[in-house]
Amino acid sequence: MGAGGGIVAEDVWVRDRRVGPNGAHRFARAWTPKALGSTGARGPAPIVLFHESLGCVALWKSFPEQLAMATGRRIIAFDRLGFGRSDPLHHRSGFDFIAREGLDTVPLLQEAFGFSRFVACGHSVGGGMAVETAARMRGACAALVTIAAQSFVEERTLKGVRAAEAVFRTPESLARLARHHGDKARFVVEFWTRTWLDPAFADWTLDAALAEVTCPLLAIHGVDDEYGSPAHARRIAGAHGELLLMAGAGHMLHRMREAELVAAIAAFLARLDV
């Protein structure tokens, strides 16, 4: 498929032979600046995007293309199994799904798109996945960006999840989500809400992973985020990372504050030799 503004978009399905008897396919899309050529091989490290709990490639909207234009980098996004256009999951994963996602998916993307080093960037729970990926793939992860990520279980987060759970009990709300997830929409909602509201998940944190991150780090958060206070971003940035708090901003920064978010990420990466 094509895209405007000097960007070429490419869709692929990557097969994971480790899942089930016949393997499973993840849907992925790459946005490549035309100046980099068809493969982007001679360009800087691409940015791999990890989506939120209700997200998928399509719900990044225009953000990947804008980020590709601003950074001159290839942007690669994918649908987790059970989400978007990827194959369904038949049961909810264990609580280690945040830690596993990068290790399960990034090597498949590296093979499919022909890159080794990359920038991990994630929104919400995808930010947690990006942190875990940076910690577990230190030799390949050149930089890390989190957007509205949670780093521990906070009552403000649980309050937001409970409110959303009530909203998605209505057929109209679920139907809107089904436009992007099809008949997986109910699974998507329940995966999110049942995980966060399970008492067994209450002690989850990113602390162990954050202690292993060695690459440059930027944590971005909206001050008015309904799914987590700025304490999450402060914890992620720690003593050595960069912190950006956006006043008057909520959770969906890549939609409501796209231009500001793109500019911040582009400026951060421009300062790095990656």
Rank of each mutant, 00 (worst) to 15 (best):
G182C: 02
D183H: 14
D183W: 10
K184L: 05
K184F: 07
K184V: 00
A185P: 14
V188Y: 10
V189H: 04
V189C: 11
E190A: 05
E190R: 15
E190I: 05
E190N: 13
F191M: 13
F191E: 15
W192N: 15
W192H: 12
T193E: 04
T193M: 00
R194M: 08
R194H: 04
R194A: 07
R194N: 08
T195V: 10
T195G: 11
W196G: 07
W196H: 13
W196F: 12
L197F: 10
D198G: 00
D198F: 01
D198S: 06
P199Q: 08
A200L: 15
A202N: 00
A202I: 06
A202S: 01
D203R: 14
D203P: 09
W204M: 10
T205A: 01
D207W: 08
A208G: 01
A211G: 04
A211I: 05
A211H: 06
A211Q: 14
A211E: 15
E212Q: 09
V213E: 00
V213N: 08
T214G: 14
T214K: 09
L217C: 15
L218W: 08
A219N: 04
I220S: 15
I220F: 07
H221L: 00
H221A: 02
H221P: 02
V223L: 14
V223Y: 13
V223D: 15
V223H: 10
V223G: 11
V223T: 12
V223C: 07
D224L: 12
D225K: 09
E226F: 13
Y227R: 00
Y227E: 09
P230K: 11
P230C: 05
A231H: 04
A231Y: 00
A231D: 11
A231G: 11
A231P: 07
H232I: 01
H232G: 05
A233C: 01
R234K: 06
R235M: 10
R235F: 04
I236S: 06
G238Y: 10
G238D: 06
G238V: 05
A239S: 01
A239R: 04
H240P: 10
H240I: 00
G241T: 08
G241Y: 03
G241A: 01
G241P: 13
G241H: 04
E242L: 03
E242M: 11
L243C: 03
L243R: 05
L245P: 12
L245M: 07
A249W: 11
A249D: 06
G250M: 08
G250K: 13
G250P: 02
M252G: 01
L253D: 12
L253S: 02
H254N: 10
H254G: 00
